[in-house]
């Protein structure tokens, strides 16, 4: 199975001299949800914009469903839908008219039944005769998604899909993205909401200063880089960490009432049991304990800081 998107050594330098992308190579598989994470100005939108034809590519090559985005742009773009970050939509148009416009641009003949179903799926059917200017921000974003899907693309780019969207709508959006994936659409989303990537993505790419720092299965990434912590609430505060426990990466917090043991789950070999045994031998008693895992956000921050 060939990748649905294949990016090969893609670079981009803007006329100002700013190098937005530095030899990016990335394959995205059909049917996956790929999240591209990165701080502001990292190159996420530039990457998407090049693939979609909004920004001129620099060196390198991009294939969409095996089609070169420059030399075979017609066929390639028919397979791609884009939901931009900004709420850029012709506000004086009705929902139905703007959808027809998008469908027409793709070169496909009108398909009323499909567009009706699309609007129904996005809970926009009742608003089809409304001018877009009368819709709420959330509705406008749904209209943008409907427009991106009007030509039945196989690949959907969502650039910060839930930026500025309230929590409830964000969850609706996630639900909808999952449904799209189930229908066979490959989703590539950029976000700086770590929670979003954690919730949605199969794989995660981290981009920083124009470089692809990492691409990894989300679960594997969390397992590989995620650190766990065991927190013990002590019965009596300790003045310091006992010298016999110096081998363990321990920290004392809350005036000696909380002992935190940080460990990598993968490298751990029964060290927790040993720690608890040694604490018992030292008569250090605890009244509560909990474990927690570092979030994707922690991983992301550490990766970006490393760079």
């Amino acid at each position: 199975m060939h990748p649905i998107i294949s990016i090969q050594n893609l670079s981009k330098t803007y006329p100002s001299g700013f190098q937005a992308l530095k030899s990016i190579s990335l394959d995205i598989q059909p049917g996956e949800i790929f999240a591209l994470l990165g701080p502001n100005g990292a190159g996420k939108t530039t990457l998407i914009s090049i693939i979609c034809g909004i920004v001129n590519p620099g060196d390198g090559r991009v294939l969409a469903d095996g089609l070169d985005i420059v030399t075979q742009y017609r066929e390639a773009r028919q397979r791609i839908g884009l939901v931009p970050q900004e709420l850029s939509v012709a506000i004086f148009e009705t929902v139905w008219d703007t959808l027809k416009f998008s469908r027409g641009l793709s070169g496909k003949p009108m398909d009323k039944a499909y567009l009706e179903q699309l609007l129904r799926d996005l809970s926009l059917w009742d608003k089809r005769h409304n001018k877009i200017m009368t819709l709420s921000g959330g509705m406008k974003r749904r209209v943008l998604i409907a427009k991106a899907l009007a030509h039945q693309p196989r690949i959907l780019f969502l650039d910060e899909p839930t930026a500025g969207v309230d929590v409830e709508l964000r969850r609706d959006m996630w639900q909808m993205i999952r449904k799209l994936r189930e229908s066979g659409v490959t989703i590539i989303l950029t976000t700086h909401y770590i929670e979003e990537a954690e919730e949605m993505a199969d794989r995660i790419g981290v981009i920083n200063k124009g470089e692809l720092v990492l691409v990894e299965e989300k679960a594997a990434l969390m397992k590989k880089l995620g650190q766990k912590q065991l927190t013990l609430q002590l019965q009596k505060p300790l003045d310091g960490i006992p010298t016999s426990l110096a081998d363990f990466p321990l920290t004392l917090t809350q005036n000696g009432e909380q002992l935190i043991y940080t460990y990598d789950e993968q490298n751990e070999k029964n060290r927790i049991a040993e720690l608890l045994r040694q604490l018992s031998a030292l008569h250090v008693e605890f009244r509560d304990l909990k474990t927690s895992q570092s979030s994707l956000e922690d991983i992301f921050v550490s990766l970006v800081e490393e760079k």
Binding site: G53, R77, P84, S88, A90, L105, S106, G107
Partner: peptide, 17 residues
Amino acid sequence: MPKFSGTIYEILSAPIS
């Protein structure tokens, strides 16, 4: 107008010469 409102993205990303 599409340049001003940002909707030009749709024209540029469409399979159109």
